[in-house]
């Protein structure tokens, strides 16, 4: 088994693991983590396609490689928006909970 096949199988396992995490995990931040695991696996599978297309003296087909570089950056942008969304949601929930609690204690005092 050559390196490309080995890492290809590794990528397939990473996709499975990431998918499992996305479905099973409860907290949103862990889902985002699992999403990035999954993404890493998909990119590696792309890398195997690039490696198989080695020709013209290059170690791999440059087109899938460039696609993956673009993909990594886009995945990061999506993660940044998702993480910010989760934090904002958390803050809004916290504020609402705090308000509800202080409202209750005010009623109790009154």
């Amino acid at each position: 088994m050559n390196a490309a096949t080995l890492f290809g199988l590794c990528g397939a396992v990473l996709v499975g693991l990431g998918l499992y995490g996305i479905i099973v995990h409860h907290e949103p931040i862990r889902k985002i983590l699992a999403f990035n695991l999954l993404g890493g696996g998909v990119f590696v599978l792309f890398g195997i396609i690039a490696r198989r297309g080695a020709a013209a003296g290059f170690g791999g087909d440059p087109v899938p490689q460039a696609l993956v570089i673009t993909g990594i950056v886009v995945a990061f942008s999506a993660s940044a928006v998702a993480v910010t969304l989760v934090m904002r949601l958390f803050e809004v929930n916290e504020a609402a909970r705090r308000e509800a609690r202080s409202g209750h204690s005010a009623e109790d005092a009154g």
Binding site: N36, G40, R51, G59, A75
Partner: peptide, 16 residues
Amino acid sequence: AGIASVDVALTEAAIG
């Protein structure tokens, strides 16, 4: 780096 994509290796380590 093992599958001869050093450009991607740099991006993955830095951004990913």
